[in-house]
């Protein structure tokens, strides 16, 4: 067994080892595709969202995994002080479909902000909303109560 002195300058083997480690880290834990683009999109939305409450992602609840048709569906829950928003993203005929639910139940406008523009819908009295045929890509959801009370809330930019 050999000992290496930490005081020595890096030699060729150190550098080779680091390069190799860099390759391995990239395989084991790759930086997600499009993360920089999503971050940039989040930055462009930041001005609009200055006064908003940011929702944070919660762990996906187990009940979302309930059948074969949900294999390709993702359920993501976001929460913050005023409300919790759960959305299920599933592949649709033309793009993706979002089924959403706001708790506590309330009527609100739901804007899906995308780099190419936005799509608006409203939730019903139960707090449910559906948006169909959304193109894939980065998006952030912004919800406002239709009665104008309370702060607007926004989700982080997610990949649909």
């Amino acid at each position: 067994m050999s000992e290496y002195s930490p005081d020595e300058v890096m030699d060729a083997r150190d550098r080779e080892l680091l390069t190799h480690l860099g390759r391995v880290v990239q395989q084991v834990d790759p930086v997600p595709d499009g993360l920089a683009e999503r971050s940039l999109f989040a930055l462009t939305l930041a001005d609009l969202q200055a006064e908003m409450v940011e929702l944070v992602r919660m762990e996906t609840p187990e009940l979302a995994l309930r059948g074969e048709e949900t294999v390709t569906a993702r359920t993501i829950t976001f929460t913050a002080d005023p409300c919790t928003v759960m959305i299920t993203v599933s592949p649709g005929e033309a793009g993706v479909r979002i089924d959403g639910w706001v708790a506590p139940a309330m009527r609100c406008t739901v804007d899906v902000l995308r780099p190419e523009g936005e799509v608006r819908t409203e939730s019903d009295d139960e707090g449910c909303f559906v948006i169909e045929d959304l193109p894939r890509g980065p998006a952030s959801l912004v919800l406002r109560r239709t009665d104008g009370t309370g702060p607007a809330v926004s989700t982080p930019v997610i990949e649909l």
Partner: peptide
């Protein structure tokens, strides 16, 4: 962004959460 990613992951944050943490840092 890749550097921030590795900093966040190096602290033991799960991949899904690490995405949001990196975005949050930029925000």
């Amino acid at each position: 962004t890749p550097l921030l990613w590795h900093v966040v992951r190096g602290q033991g944050v799960p991949r899904e959460d690490a995405e949001d943490v990196v975005q949050g840092v930029w925000l």
